[in-house]
Design a protein around this nucleic acid. Structure first.
Lengths: 359, 359
DNA sequence: AGAGCAGATGTAAGCGCTTACAGAGCCGGG
DNA sequence: CCCGGCTCTGTAAGCGCTTACATCTGCTCT
């Protein structure tokens, strides 16, 4: 094998291989490889010859060949449902930056709109050393199980699956804290807006909502189950205006929902938080700009991405998976929409940090 | 080569190769490959045997080996500065979805925070068949040039570089239209906020701003040059409140800036648009939720991503690069912040489409 | 002066796939 | 009954790298 390739003296730069570089530099391909990988010892004059040849031929190594030889893709996969809103983007940024620090590239896959998800994931598994998946909905348990054992997998903010490592942000406790806060404003008819069955995160938040009620000996109302789409907020607002839903405080599963509802209620002349308090989750940018400022919960989403990348790396290096879910702390951000007077919430540019907070 | 590998009858599923599958199925590796690639003809009984073996061994092909053999990575690279705000995410979603349709995976690279950008890009080039880069700042012209000729490259919303294909959204004309609209409200001291030298897009928007003035025989004021960071909006607002900047309308380079300014001005008791009109660019979510609604310009960002992926694919297939920049149309979205009465802008949930628009 | 050794370089064997080509059955028509 | 032409399968030659090992210098040490 490795017979001489045909290469004229003026090989066009495109398609240069390690052979053409070696030939041009008058050395063996092993030496070229050593120079480029910085491994082994190469004299400085030889190094320079090689570098010159690389420059002249405008040589770009073929990653696939290296991967095959070293038996590592040097890439991690990240599977997300989609990218609207700051949540996924933050996560992706954290993941990418850590992966880059670790010398790994990241291959992204979005599940929304994919007809054959299982196929796509399997395909992804083909080109990466490990995979992080956000939410269990994004990866059918069956697929996850198949992959698991083949490649390290970590589930982010999803239902922990048997034997698969998972990481996430804290939900139940902060939700309880947030709900408790609303209750201390004297509200009595709180309603949870969002579908607890829709995602494990939401399930936990709802659990916290329930816990806060129980702690006071109160019985929580049934949740208003709606999906996450922005338009849903308005729809829920209409149901409140029509009297179908009766509440003096709405604890929403995320900010989009909360914002949509608050905005519609205000348009209809309702006072927020006077008539009804509204709180959200995520601390999106808009939550700082609206009046009153949205009381919400900020999650360390970026850190979650970093953590996921770290875990994958650990596993690829041969490390053991964490037996139990790793949970990052969240922070309740109090602004005005919960009923708090918030003289300072009028400086949205200053970010949540300057708002009243509950540690 | 291709000597027999050692594989006990109960080879653990991890690390199964095409050889172990072939052995188990009692066929040659060529047949396994044919079954998996769907190429060539294979009898149904053989196909089934292979599929069974694949299933039993939980075989996941090694993408790198395939890439090496077919001499294609079957992956496109996308280089973005970062991912805050909806702009980049939308672009990425468009890019990913089209790439997926074309059977390509996408490898993402974020430039912010990368110490050695050139190195990172070169590294990326190693693992993909083509690269799309957002904004010229993201890729040093030298790197772009080096890559160009090696791999197809397309620049998205960046300064067109000699010989490198580029795509983008329309700026100058819409900016002129938007500025003209503000001028028709009788405003006379418009100020452009944003750094025209900071990005080609902004440069063009400023050019439109100037053109609208010239068309009326008016002379535009010098732009207030500030970067994009959210905090900048507040800073600019302070300069207005202090009287340092005198204006009755602010044409901002993007919505973040516009929102930050408007919010701060309102906090200080100024009336927007009464005292000063504020318009932005991008039509971010918050622009629909604030009061008054932000007049802005919506770009077909997702389509831009799709287009970029399409162009890369075209080029990888051996197609010719487009000689001139491809430009997608934008849409001016009129809400209340420009001075328009906007009875309907109070339904933010209904999206820009229901607002007054200028075609 | 010869042995021993370290540094520099070359040789060649893979890494796990794809695919051109060849070969083996099997059919029907002459 | 033979032969051309199917259909199906196997053989083997790469794809462009990395890296263990061999080789070759030129020293230093005794």
């Amino acid at each position: 094998m490795a017979t001489a390739r045909e290469h004229g003296p003026d090989t066009p730069s495109v398609g240069a291989t390690i052979y053409s570089v070696a030939e041009r530099a008058g050395v063996s391909i092993a030496t070229v490889s050593r120079v480029l990988q910085g491994a082994g010892t190469v004299s400085s004059t030889t190094t320079q010859k090689v570098l010159d040849a690389v420059e002249q031929l405008n040589y770009v190594p073929l990653g696939a060949a290296r991967s095959l030889a070293v038996r590592h893709h040097e890439a991690y996969g990240l599977v997300l449902p989609e990218l609207t809103g700051p949540y996924y983007s933050e996560l992706l940024m954290g993941f990418e930056s850590r992966a880059a620090e670790l010398g790994q590239s990241v291959t992204l896959m979005l599940t929304d709109g994919k007809a054959d998800l299982a196929r796509a994931v399997r395909q992804l598994a083909t080109r990466v050393d490990a995979i992080a998946v956000l939410g269990s909905a994004a990866m059918p348990p069956a697929v996850a199980r198949a992959l698991h054992g083949q490649k390290p997998v970590v589930i982010i903010a999803g239902a922990p699956q048997e034997g698969i490592e998972s990481v996430g942000a804290e939900n139940a406790h902060s939700a309880e804290q947030l709900t408790e806060h609303v209750l201390t404003h004297g509200r009595t008819r709180l309603v949870f807006v969002g579908d607890p069955e829709g995602a494990p995160d939401i399930y936990e938040r709802h659990a916290g909502f329930v816990a806060a009620h129980r702690a006071r000996g109160a019985e929580p109302a049934a949740p208003v189950r709606v999906p996450f789409r922005e338009g849903e907020g308005e729809a829920v607002a209409e149901r409140i205006l029509s009297g179908e839903i009766e509440a003096d405080a709405l604890v929403c599963a995320n900010d989009e929902l909360a914002l949509g509802i608050m905005s519609r209620l205000q348009d209809a002349g309702r006072d927020v938080p006077g008539d009804v308090a509204v709180v959200g989750w995520d601390d999106v940018m808009a939550s700082r700009y609206v009046r009153p400022g949205m009381t919400t919960v900020s999650q360390p989403v970026r850190e979650l991405g970093v953590l996921a990348a770290d875990r994958l790396h650990h596993r690829v290096q041969g490390g053991e998976p964490h037996a139990e879910r790793q949970v990052l702390a969240t922070r309740v951000i109090i602004r005005g929409s919960c009923g708090c007077a918030s003289p300072r919430n009028t400086h949205p540019g200053r970010s949540g940090v300057t708002d009243d907070e509950q540690p």
